[in-house]
């Protein structure tokens, strides 16, 4: 386990809280963090810090869908509680990860009354995301630049910009309507690559191949892939493998959409 406490800090905690309230808040906190894409060891450290500041210890098991957390009082181990909480996976949110980690240090360094901690937690998680339109525009520009990095010319960049604009817009809309994530990725990959193949169909520019190849790259689950390797290297091997399999399935969905549009082109033309 990750013990972040130095041996000297055994002074009784300045604020007291019931095991039930603390356990509920920590489960909310963990479920939110896991849902926005934190790696497992950071979660374990953050939770241990908060529990520590109220005089409790935690041990937890984390899987992709559920968290099991045992929390017990440092002096009196008859005060204990073990609960399981479902994880709602949402879009990745680095702002939450950053601020919730800072909150855990704040609680550890300057213990605060429990309702103040709860208020701060609620304030952080109610913060809205960046505007969807700004994200759409920036993602399209990013994918066009990506095409340039692979050696595409300006025509290819234009095609990729339009393909990403359409594909990512579709992804935002379908995700809002709570469609299955795998289906969303496959459909967006199909639409983006169909638009991306315009250059090949009509012979536009000198690098139509590059345009087609980069048109679907905005769908690659980069952060989950990185997190899976982080987890495996840090010893959370089961958690890491389940993340890797999930990312792998999404990549297969991209390949399915891409294959369909490649097949409509006819392979001889490639």
């Amino acid at each position: 386990m990750n013990r972040t406490t130095p041996a000297t800090k055994i002074a009784p905690p300045p604020y007291k809280v019931g095991v039930r309230e603390l356990s509920n808040l920590l489960l909310d906190y963990s479920s939110t963090l896991m849902g926005c894409g934190v790696h497992t060891s950071r979660l374990a450290r953050n939770v241990a810090r908060i529990a520590e500041s109220y005089g409790y210890e935690t041990e937890m098991t984390v899987f992709r869908r559920h968290i099991t957390m045992s929390i017990l009082h440092r002096e009196d181990d008859s005060i204990r509680r073990t609960s399981v909480r479902k994880i709602d996976h949402g879009p990745i949110n680095f702002e939450f990860i950053s601020r919730l980690s800072a909150l855990s240090w704040e609680a550890y360094d300057n213990p605060m009354p429990f309702d103040e901690l709860q208020r701060k937690y609620e304030a952080i998680v109610s913060k809205p995301r960046l505007s969807a339109w700004v994200v759409l525009l920036l993602v399209s520009l990013a994918n066009a630049s990506f095409c340039r990095l692979f050696g595409g010319d300006f025509v290819a960049m234009g095609i990729v910009f339009v393909a990403t604009l359409a594909g990512f817009f579709l992804r935002q809309q379908l995700t809002l309507r709570r469609m299955n994530q795998m289906a969303v990725v496959a459909i967006c990959s199909l639409i983006a690559s169909l638009i991306g193949s315009i250059g090949l169909r009509y012979g536009l520019g000198t690098t139509p191949q590059t345009a087609l190849a980069s048109s679907v790259l905005f769908l690659i689950p980069g952060v989950p892939l990185i997190n899976s390797i982080v987890d495996i290297l840090e010893g959370y091997i089961l958690a890491g493998i389940s993340r890797a399999i999930h990312a792998g399935i999404l990549i297969i969905c991209i390949a399915i959409g891409l294959s369909v549009s490649l097949l409509t082109l006819g392979l001889n033309s490639l």
Partner: peptide, 23 residues
């Protein structure tokens, strides 16, 4: 130029993950 386009690509792919603005 390579660095410049990589920077644009990174910003675009980063905002999907809702990073803190100052980063």
């Amino acid at each position: 130029l390579d660095g410049l386009f990589a920077a644009i690509a990174a910003v675009g792919f980063a905002v999907i993950s809702n990073p803190p603005r100052r980063t």
